[in-house]
């Protein structure tokens, strides 16, 4: 079970809801992924154009925990405002703190992320900061009392996979709250790798929504996360530099 604050989840896959080719594909992908946590962004409604269907309104919200993000914010104050808007929907009390500090790499602003996390904790939110893979920053966020740490594997939407497994391992080792690898996952092997490193969950979006077959990829990610987690629990064999025979060297059959 993945536990974030007082909420428990069977699935360790957190799924974003952006950039799917169609609602139909998205609905199927969400269903086969078996995710229980969906992320969303908060935006001004386009009320002057003909009503467009909204994905959220097509879901049975009983089955999902909503994790709104603060994407679009570049300061702590903006992030807090977006979080308060999301909470006023009456549908969620968790927030993914996402404060971008670089418009090219989309890497998070560490200083504003730390400030916003502190402010949101004081406001009573369940706070999940999306952060860089900086070990000291992750420790400071933990010390504030955030409810999970979400270090990026690589820049958002890049699909690079885990660029710094050592840092992620150190973050996982020191953390007293769940570590969810968020952003940069490209393929199932990346998700499995994150889980094998000991992550508690993986948050991804583009890896599924931009796959040639998003529904199949959603299933692949679900299985990869399960496999990686099982592998972590099982404890992998040591790595050696030379070959070690698996078959006995005694009792060789004479020529």
């Amino acid at each position: 079970m993945l536990q974030i604050a007082d909420k428990r989840f069977s699935s360790r896959l957190l799924l974003g809801t952006g950039k799917y080719p169609s609602f139909e594909t998205q609905k199927k992908a969400v269903a086969v992924s078996e995710t229980e946590i969906l992320t969303f962004a908060v935006r001004r409604m386009n009320i002057f154009e003909e009503s467009q269907p909204n994905f959220l309104e097509q879901l049975d919200l009983e089955h999902y925990t909503l994790l709104p993000n603060t994407a679009g914010a570049s300061t702590a104050e903006e992030a807090v405002h977006i979080a308060k808007l999301a909470k006023a929907s009456g549908l969620c009390d968790m927030v993914k703190v996402e404060i971008i500090g670089c418009s090219h790499s989309l890497l998070p602003d560490p200083v504003e992320t730390l400030r916003a996390s502190e402010m949101l904790l004081e406001e009573g939110f369940i706070v999940l900061p999306y952060t860089s893979d900086d070990v000291v920053l992750a420790r400071k966020l933990c010390e504030l009392g955030v409810h999970a740490i979400m270090p990026g594997a690589a820049p958002i939407g890049s699909g690079h996979g885990i660029l710094n497994p050592l840092n992620l391992s150190l973050i996982i080792e020191q953390s007293n709250v769940p570590v969810i690898v968020d952003a940069g996952i490209g393929s199932p092997k990346d998700a499995a790798y994150a889980m094998e490193l000991g992550a508690d969950g993986v948050l991804l979006n583009t890896a599924v929504s931009e796959a040639a077959d998003p529904v199949k990829m959603a299933e692949a990610m679900k299985l990869a996360i399960e496999a990686g987690h099982l592998g972590y629990q099982a404890g992998r064999m040591p790595v050696r530099d030379y070959g070690v025979a698996s078959s006995p060297l005694e009792g060789l059959v004479p020529n």
Binding site: G16, T17, G18, K19, Y20, Q26, T39, F40, A41, V42, R43, R44, M45, I47, N54, F55, L56, L66, P68, N69, A71, L85, A86, S89, I156, G157, A183, L203, L204, N205, T206
Partner: peptide, 10 residues
């Protein structure tokens, strides 16, 4: 008046 909603995002 601002009317705000949730949209797809990661």
């Amino acid at each position: 008046i601002e009317i705000i909603h949730f949209v797809g995002g990661g």
